[in-house]
Design a protein around this nucleic acid. Structure first.
Lengths: 126, 126
DNA sequence: CCCTTCACTTACCAAAAGGTAAGTACCGCA
DNA sequence: TGCGGTACTTACCTTTTGGTAAGTGAAGGG
């Protein structure tokens, strides 16, 4: 658990991609970073309604290991840490677009619930 | 747990789509059905290396609830059950194609392991 | 006569994922 | 003096997910 176990063996590409996005908030983190370019820890926390600090750091660390995001620490006080997408992360985000389209169709089709949070950048644009 | 809990509320489309594909074998089931059109239970079992019967039925039932697949039972003995993709299932599969592309890139990039099973239709074509 | 095949179900267990709450250390503000 | 903000870590617990092994019941083959 300490060292990443997310490295196959995989059966196909879908497998290898899902392994990296599955996690309750990873899709949203990807989207937030895509929408804003650069985000700090607390900005991400505020953008993801209901995320715990533990889960957020855990996801961010894994995504860093998986080379989806960059993490830049500034030696200041109070601390400042910035997150951005890597090239692979940006490409993954693009690859997720059709899936997001399909998901929105599913929500319409089945009249599923959506969280009531219309001012969040995420729900407004995704 | 008896009745499907996979119905949000969702934050965005990615959310609603990932909810439906996450599950160890769902991507593969989708792909198998796409590749062959119609598949029986035992054919799927043989196509997914290592799947347990419990998980396979569980996944198939959920995918039926989520309207990704059709299930046709023939009143014969020995029993015969056929699975096919619904329109939504086929569309989901299409939406997963770019993700599969990205995943294959990731495998190449990071030189990750792939299961050694070159004769399986899944690994050969996905 | 027993073994296998078909498509499952059930009970039980282990591992993984995720949530809660607290602590850390330093700063600015009132 | 004490609160809130910065970015975390740690311990503990619950929920979810997946796996193992067995049972079902009728038919066809050796």
């Amino acid at each position: 658990m300490a060292r990443t176990p997310r490295l196959g063996p995989y059966i196909c590409g879908i497998d290898a991609a899902l392994d990296v996005v599955s996690g309750k908030w990873k899709g949203l983190i990807l989207w937030e970073l895509h929408a804003h370019g650069v985000r700090r820890f607390a900005e991400l926390r505020r953008a993801l309604p209901g995320v715990s600090e533990k889960m957020l750091t855990q996801h961010l660390r894994q995504m860093e290991e998986d080379e989806l995001i960059h993490r830049t620490v500034y030696a200041e006080v109070p601390p400042k840490v910035e997150y951005t997408l890597t090239e692979a992360g940006a490409a993954l985000n693009e690859a997720l677009l059709p899936l997001g389209e399909w998901g929105r169709d599913r929500i319409r089709r089945s009249r599923l619930e959506v969280v009531a949070d219309p001012h969040t950048s995420v729900s407004a644009t995704a």
